[in-house]
Simulated assay, not measured.
Amino acid sequence: MSDATPYVLVLYYSRHGATRTLAEALAEGVESVAGIGARLRTVPAVSPVSEATAPPIPDEGAIYVEEDDLRYSAGLALGSPTRFGNMAAPLKYFLDTTSGLWMNGVLVDRPATAFTSTASLHGGQESTLLTMLIPLLHHGMVYAGIPYSETALIHTQSGGTPYGASHLAGGDASRGVDDDERALAFAQGRRLGELSLALRKMREARP
């Protein structure tokens, strides 16, 4: 991917690896679309008083996000495990710093989506995804879920919602991302990649 190639920012927080696996599958879906790439980024953990507490470079996985990663993206995929039916604090901590982008309308008319992971079957997957879209709508982004034309959404026995990809990890986080969950994340990324290019073209055509 050259510097001139548009990209989707795949931004996630992951404690045990499941959300990261979904992020990687979604990024593969984005990159299956010709003409666009995916940029994987994560966020540092925060302390109980909501201050970032992490080394400058993560021990493994994606590097930490910077505001310019979001500023220059063509689209955004936001991933987090569930925390009482909402996104994890480290991800919200980053989003709370983006008011400058909001004030200048930087993200208006760019597509966005979300994905999540829970330990229990009814652990708040859908409420987490729905609450994650709220700041995206405040930024003027265009939310894209997963349509039921994706057959894995109909017969999945684990994760997967029309609001976004999800994973059921089990109480001890021992269940890996299964084929349906991975397929849905891939499809979500592919759709986001296509929409990112289409909406980018629309914005560039404006007088």
Rank of each mutant, 00 (worst) to 15 (best):
G85W: 08
H155P: 07
L197P: 00
R200N: 10
A38S: 02
L22D: 02
A205G: 15
L130A: 05
T98A: 01
Y148S: 12
A34C: 07
G170N: 08
L192Q: 07
T151M: 11
P135H: 04
E150C: 15
Y64V: 09
G35H: 06
A52E: 14
P56A: 08
D69L: 04
I154K: 11
Y64R: 05
A88C: 10
D109E: 15
L40N: 04
A25M: 08
S99E: 14
G100Y: 14
G164L: 10
G17H: 10
S73I: 01
M132R: 00
G189H: 03
A187I: 08
P81L: 03
L121N: 09
G160M: 06
Y7K: 04
P58K: 02
S158K: 15
P207N: 12
S120G: 13
V10N: 01
Q157N: 03
A38I: 04
S32P: 02
D178I: 02
P55D: 11
T116M: 05
D69C: 07
V8G: 05
R203P: 00
H16A: 14
T5R: 01
D180E: 10
L153C: 08
A74R: 04
L129S: 04
A205K: 12
R39G: 00
G160W: 00
M103K: 14
I63N: 14
V108P: 05
F186Y: 11
G17M: 07
G140Y: 03
L9E: 01
F115Y: 04
A165N: 12
E67I: 14
L197F: 06
A4M: 00
W102A: 11
Q157E: 12
Y12W: 03
V49W: 07
T161Y: 12
T21W: 02
L26S: 02
D69Y: 06
E204I: 00
R175V: 11
